[in-house]
Amino acid sequence: MRILVVCGAGASSTFVAQRVRHAAQAHGLPYVAFAGTERSLPIDLDAADVVLVGAHLADVVPRIERDAAARGTTVVVLPADISDDLDGSRTLALIRAAVGDFGGTLPANTPSPT
């Protein structure tokens, strides 16, 4: 699974993508995460199965969801405190819940996918 993490300038998305890669690897999941920006989204979206959107971009989420839907890509808006997820496990759980990947156990406090 290819996961695009989008933020305004690309700095915070780089950290989130790196943490997701490490968490996925620790769980033996074939996930690839990469960072992008709002500006690079039209190009990056073609290479993604899931798009994680920083909470600060909430005003553009409807446009991102529309563009992603045309490609069959899932959009997940990250909580504002996602930077506190230092090992990426919470972010990974959000991704797995969004795509229905329950092949393993999800950490406590994982939101229901419904």
Results as ranks from 00 to 15, higher is better:
M1N: 08
M1R: 15
M1Q: 11
I3W: 04
L4M: 05
L4G: 07
L4R: 08
L4K: 08
V5F: 02
V6K: 05
S12A: 07
S12Y: 03
S12R: 09
S12M: 05
S13N: 07
T14A: 13
T14M: 09
T14S: 14
F15P: 00
V16Q: 09
V16H: 14
V16R: 07
A17M: 07
A17S: 04
Q18E: 11
R19F: 03
V20Y: 07
H22L: 07
H22P: 00
A23S: 11
Q25H: 10
Q25W: 12
Q25F: 11
A26G: 09
H27V: 04
H27I: 00
G28Q: 04
G28K: 06
G28L: 10
V32S: 12
A33M: 08
A33C: 07
F34R: 13
A35H: 10
T37D: 03
T37I: 04
T37Q: 04
E38I: 12
E38G: 13
E38N: 05
R39E: 13
R39T: 12
P42T: 09
I43D: 15
I43R: 13
I43S: 12
D44S: 14
D44G: 07
L45M: 11
L45C: 06
A48Y: 08
A48M: 05
A48F: 03
V50F: 02
L52E: 01
V53R: 05
G54Q: 04
A55P: 05
L57Y: 00
L57H: 02
L57I: 06
L57W: 00
L57M: 06
D59F: 15
V60I: 14
V61L: 01
P62T: 09
E65P: 09
E65R: 15
E65K: 13
R66G: 10
R66M: 10
A68Y: 00
A68H: 02
A70Y: 00
A70M: 14
R71H: 13
R71D: 00
G72V: 07
T73Y: 02
T73L: 04
T74G: 10
T74M: 12
V75A: 09
V75G: 09
V76L: 00
L78N: 05
L78D: 06
L78R: 06
P79T: 01
A80V: 15
D81Q: 13
S83F: 15
D84L: 12
D84G: 13
D84N: 15
D85G: 10
D85K: 09
D85T: 01
L86M: 13
D87H: 14
G88P: 04
G88L: 02
R90I: 01
T91L: 12
L92W: 04
A93I: 10
L94K: 10
R96L: 01
A97S: 15
A97C: 09
V99A: 04
V99W: 03
G100I: 03
D101R: 12
D101H: 06
F102P: 06
F102M: 06
F102E: 05
G103D: 09
G103Q: 10
G104V: 11
T105V: 13
T105A: 15
L106T: 05
L106E: 04
P107G: 08
P107M: 01
A108L: 13
A108H: 11
A108W: 05
N109F: 15
T110G: 11
P111K: 13
P111Q: 11
P113S: 12
P113R: 11
P113T: 06
T114E: 13
